[in-house]
Design a protein around this nucleic acid. Sequence first.
DNA 1: CGTATTTGACCAGCGC
DNA 2: GCGCTGGTCAAATACG
Length: 165
Amino acid sequence: MVPKMSDNNPKPPDSPESDFSKQWHSELYDYLNLDDDQLPCDDLDSFVSGHVPSHNTQANEVGDLVGSSTHQEEFSISKQRDVDEKKEVRDRVAFKTKSEIEIMNDGFKWRKYGKKKVKNSPNPRNYFKCSVDGCSVKKTVEREKDDPRYVITTYVGTHTHPSNS
DNA sequence: CGTATTTGACCAGCGC
DNA sequence: GCGCTGGTCAAATACG
């Protein structure tokens, strides 16, 4: 179908940090709020959001940050090294959710394109792409190594369409 | 029959 | 320069 949320939304494809980006984050935040009340998953134990330039530390950051959290919270991970900053070109948003299932209905349609066992965790990491044409958002889902009951979902990129798939 | 998922192989980047 | 790890692709398979 043709996703159109507003009749005055230009959403330039070459501006990943456009106004739509903020809306996309707002949708995520709204999703989190709804999740605690409507979504079938048990409950959110924590919420981690931030720009993570590195490609192998976000899991550690999450595990460390949520150690003292009991509800969804937002963290700005900015203690990355200066050598990593130059690689920051995409938005990465990580969620840690207490759920028995990894595939949660977040309003978008995802297509699984890979699975990999990572060294950082004994559990495999699943790779998903947004199946909407023109949207290149990806997400990775993996179980918390220390608490298999928790699922870490990391979104990479910004949706260029409304969540109403 | 069409679409989604699975799984192994391949490629690129980073660290040593 | 080599090895390791993470990420992506593509063919095969399963399911609706």
